[in-house]
Design a protein around this nucleic acid. Structure first.
Length: 277
DNA sequence: CGTATTTGACCTTG
DNA sequence: CAAGGTCAAATACG
C-alpha cells in the first residue's frame, strides 16, 4: 500500500471512531452537551475533507501515470506541463546566522545532492502538507559558491495548502532565515525601512514571484490550482450551508469564500489535531 | 514513540 | 552515460 493510501485509511478510521463517539453521545444525551456534539461533527467533516483531498491527489497521480504510459508523443505535453518555477537569490548579513526564522510554510527535506561544478550541495524540500493536503510546493536551496552568505533558492509550484505556520516549531536550514527576511520585507514597509543595508540584500529575479510571496503572506490566494478550487467547491457543497439545522449553521461556507477553513477553526477552537487549519 | 533528516539507490532526462 | 531529481530505509531527535 502506498504511503498516501495508508494515510487515507488512517483518516477514515479516525472518522469512524469520531462517528462512534457521536453516536454514543446522542444515545446518552445526559452525559453530553450540544457543544461537544458540534465539535465531533466538525471533526468528522474535517476527516472527510482530508480524505477527499488525499484521494484527489492519488487520482491525479494515477491519471498522470496512465497518460504517460499511453501517450507516445508526449513531448508537447511536457512542454505544457512544465512546472512553474521561480528563482530567488538571497544574501544575509553575518550577524544573522543562527536565528531561526521561517517563511510562513512548513518544509520537509527529502533529498540532498552534490551538484556538478558546485562546491555546495543542493537541498530539496517539499511542503509538509504534500500528502495531507496535496500541496505540490517544492523548493531547492543551494549555498552560493562565490558568496557563502548568499543562497540560491528555486521554488517549484506554489503552495495550495494556504497555510502560514509562523508560530509552529521549525527545523529549517540557515537559508530559511533569509527567506523570512524576504517575506517580512515584502509584508511590511517598516521592516524594510528599519533594516540596515548590510543586514539584508535581496535580489528577486521575477516580479511575478514578488506578487506570489505577498499573496501567500496576505492569506489570500487568488490564483490557486484548479484542482484545489475544485476541491474547495466540493467541500463547500459537502459542508452544511443552511441555518435550519441549528447545529451546523455556524460554519456556512460559500464556494468563493477563501476563508472556508477559518469558520471551522473558529468553531473548533484549539482542537490539537486540527492545528494545521 | 512519532516525526524529521540523512543518504545511498533508483529513476528520468538530455 | 552523466547529471539532476526523488524515494525510502536507516538514523537522529525531541
Amino acid at each position: 500500500m502506498l504511503m498516501e493510501e495508508k494515510l487515507v485509511v488512517k483518516e477514515l478510521e479516525q472518522g469512524k471512531e469520531l462517528a462512534n463517539q457521536l453516536m454514543n453521545s446522542l444515545n446518552n444525551p445526559s452525559s453530553s452537551s450540544k457543544e461537544s456534539n458540534e465539535v465531533l461533527i466538525s471533526e468528522i467533516l474535517h476527516c472527510f475533507e482530508n480524505t477527499i483531498a488525499m484521494m484527489m491527489n492519488l487520482d491525479k497521480k494515477a491519471l498522470k501515470r496512465s497518460h504517460e504510459r499511453s501517450d507516445q508523443s508526449n513531448k508537447k505535453r511536457r512542454m505544457l506541463e512544465k512546472k512553474k518555477t521561480e528563482k530567488v537569490n538571497i544574501c544575509i548579513g553575518s550577524g544573522q546566522e543562527g536565528t531561526l526564522l521561517d517563511d510562513g510554510h512548513c518544509w520537509r527535506k527529502y533529498g540532498q545532492k552534490d551538484i556538478h561544478g558546485s562546491k555546495n550541495p543542493r537541498g530539496y524540500y517539499r511542503c509538509t502538507h504534500k500528502f495531507t493536503r496535496g500541496c505540490l510546493a517544492v523548493k531547492q536551496v543551494q549555498k552560493s559558491d562565490t558568496n557563502p552568505l548568499c543562497y540560491e533558492v528555486k521554488y517549484v509550484e506554489s503552495h495550495t495548502c494556504d497555510i502560514t505556520q509562523s508560530a509552529t516549531k521549525h527545523s529549517l536550514p540557515v537559508s530559511e532565515e533569509a527567506e523570512q527576511k524576504l517575506h517580512d520585507a515584502k509584508h511590511s514597509d517598516d521592516t524594510v525601512q528599519h533594516m540596515k543595508p548590510e543586514e539584508l540584500m535581496l535580489s528577486i529575479e521575477d516580479l511575478d514571484y514578488k506578487k506570489d510571496i505577498f499573496r501567500t503572506f496576505s492569506f489570500s490566494n487568488h490564483e490557486m490550482d484548479d484542482d484545489f478550487l475544485e476541491w474547495k467547491d466540493l467541500m463547500a457543497n459537502l459542508s452544511p450551508t443552511t441555518s435550519e439545522s441549528g447545529i451546523t449553521n455556524e460554519f456556512h461556507v460559500s464556494p468563493t469564500d477563501d476563508s472556508c477553513f477559518s469558520s471551522l477553526e473558529t468553531l473548533l477552537g484549539s482542537t490539537p489535531d486540527l492545528s494545521w487549519m
